[in-house]
């Protein structure tokens, strides 16, 4: 539960279970790894999302903000929320098996 926005996190998405639970990591480092991990994730996601005219940014280390070029935005929690939100903004189903997308990715257009 976030005390500022009262957003309850009921479910930890499987992609966020990166380290073994209960693993001891020093406090400061943990935060640094956490922030770096989120930036890394947003960076990688953008390499895919740019083909749909979308962009995702980390917001204060707690949420991600997905936006399109018209300025519409969606607040998302994790990767579980990313793809439905992206579909909502572009207006059609995203398909990673789509040959057009694969072609673009391969030729780095």
């Amino acid at each position: 539960m976030c005390v500022l926005c009262t957003g309850a996190i009921l479910q930890v998405h499987w992609t966020d279970r990166r380290t073994a639970e209960g693993a001891a990591v020093p406090g400061e480092d943990q935060l640094r790894f956490y922030r770096r991990g989120r930036l890394h994730r947003a960076g990688l996601a953008n390499k895919i999302l740019c083909h749909y005219g979308l962009k995702v940014e980390d917001w204060n280390g707690s949420k991600f903000v997905l936006s399109d070029r018209k300025g519409r935005q969606e607040i998302i929690e994790d990767l579980g929320g990313l793809w439905p939100a992206a579909e909502k903004l572009v207006g059609y189903k995203l398909n990673p098996l789509d040959s057009v997308l694969i072609g673009k990715l391969k030729h780095n257009v």
């Binding site: 990688l44 996601a45 895919i48 995203l94 398909n95 990673p96 098996l97």
Partner: peptide
């Protein structure tokens, strides 16, 4: 890379 793989698999599972 878990992050990269997670992105691909979550997208794939979302779509298919």
């Amino acid at each position: 890379d878990w992050t990269a793989f997670g992105l691909w698999l979550s997208m794939l599972l979302h779509a298919k």
